[in-house]
Computed example of a mutant assay.
Amino acid sequence: MSRQAEADRPAAVWDPEQYGVFGDERARPFAELLARVDPAAPRRVADLGCGTGELTAALARRWPDAVIEAFDSSPEMIEKARARAIPGRLDFTVGDVRTWRPAEPVDLIVSNAVLQWVPEHVDLLPRWIGELAPGGRLAFQVPGNFDAPSHTLLRELCDTPRWRGRVGAPPRARPVLDPVGYLDLLTRHGYEADAWETTYAQVLHGEDAVLEWLKGTTLRPVLTALGPAETSEFLSDYGALLRAAYPPAPYGTVFPFRRVFVIAGRAGP
């Protein structure tokens, strides 16, 4: 779930506790993705970019006979995830999704909210499908809200004289494709693909709710580059911009969140 170019991000970027503040909202796209996954009883499953493992555990519950290997590049995330390990069935390992190779073909590869942090993922996807067993599927979802105020305001703030050169890299403007782009990419490689998008009208609760959401993901590489005093100042500046862009209502703060979903595999039986 989670992440700057998977192997390049600093180890301390990811904070499992902050990431889990909105755990239910972050799990919703994963549930939608799995609802469209067809393999009735996969024997081997890989979860690439597993984060703290809550959603990987859902895979183990859905397919109790499957052997699941799960990877994330963050030692902090994997340390948290290992409490959910099941000997012989569910294993969590620190690893880089860009160099991952299974020991044998797998029936299902899942990647949840990871590939936006991997610039070369469009080259990885055809290779991953090549690692599937006959009838296997690759299922992934990525955020698609990089043109939203949350991200455009962050890029603009990072480029102001006060912050330029002081913060980590702001989110790239277009780190993912749209559904048509992924469908075209994979179909041109001879694979079948089902691609779609959903925009969730999320209602977040609490003070500065959108800022708190972004502190768990998008802001992590930026904040890692700052000391405590600068962090406080940056969050104050960014929080003011977010409050204007996402004004709270009596029932909470509406934060529209677009997600892109893809399920793909080899054509034929």
Results as ranks from 00 to 15, higher is better:
Arg3Ala: 05
Ala5Tyr: 13
Ala5His: 15
Glu6Phe: 15
Ala7Val: 06
Ala11Arg: 15
Ala11Tyr: 07
Ala12Thr: 12
Ala12Gln: 13
Glu17Phe: 04
Phe22Gln: 09
Arg26Pro: 01
Phe30Ala: 06
Ala31Val: 08
Leu33His: 01
Arg36His: 05
Arg36Val: 00
Val37Lys: 01
Ala40Trp: 07
Pro42Met: 14
Arg43Pro: 04
Arg44Leu: 13
Arg44Tyr: 11
Ala46Glu: 04
Gly49Asn: 03
Cys50Phe: 03
Thr52His: 11
Thr52Cys: 00
Thr56His: 13
Ala60Asn: 00
Trp63Met: 08
Ala66Pro: 15
Val67Gln: 15
Glu69Ala: 12
Glu69Tyr: 02
Glu69Leu: 11
Pro75Leu: 12
Ile78Leu: 08
Lys80His: 14
Ala81Asn: 10
Arg82Met: 02
Ala83Gly: 01
Ala83His: 09
Ala85Glu: 13
Phe92Ile: 11
Arg101Trp: 02
Pro102His: 10
Val106Cys: 13
Leu108Tyr: 07
Val110Cys: 10
Ala113Asn: 05
Val114Leu: 12
Gln116Glu: 13
Pro119Ser: 09
Arg127Glu: 10
Ile129Ala: 05
Arg137Lys: 15
Leu138Ile: 01
Phe146Gln: 01
Phe146Lys: 02
Asp147Asn: 08
His151Ile: 04
Thr152Ala: 04
Leu153Gln: 03
Leu154Ile: 05
Arg155Phe: 09
Glu156Ser: 14
Arg164Cys: 12
Arg164Trp: 05
Gly165Arg: 14
Gly168Arg: 09
Gly168Tyr: 15
Pro171Gly: 09
Arg172Thr: 14
Gly181Glu: 03
Leu183Asn: 09
Tyr191Ile: 02
Trp196Ile: 08
Glu197Gly: 05
Thr199Asn: 07
Val203Trp: 14
Val203Met: 07
His205Cys: 07
Glu207Thr: 11
Val210Pro: 12
Leu211Tyr: 12
Trp213Gln: 00
Trp213Phe: 11
Thr217Arg: 02
Thr218Ile: 08
Ala225Ile: 00
Leu226Lys: 09
Pro228Thr: 02
Ala229Thr: 06
Leu235Asn: 09
Leu235Ala: 10
Leu235Gly: 02
Ser236Gly: 06
Tyr238Gly: 01
Gly239Trp: 05
Leu242Asn: 07
Leu242Lys: 03
Arg243Phe: 07
Ala245Val: 10
Pro247Lys: 05
Ala249Gln: 13
Ala249Asn: 08
Tyr251Trp: 10
Pro256Cys: 03
Phe257Asp: 04
Phe257Trp: 08
Val260Met: 03
Val262Trp: 00
Gly265Tyr: 03
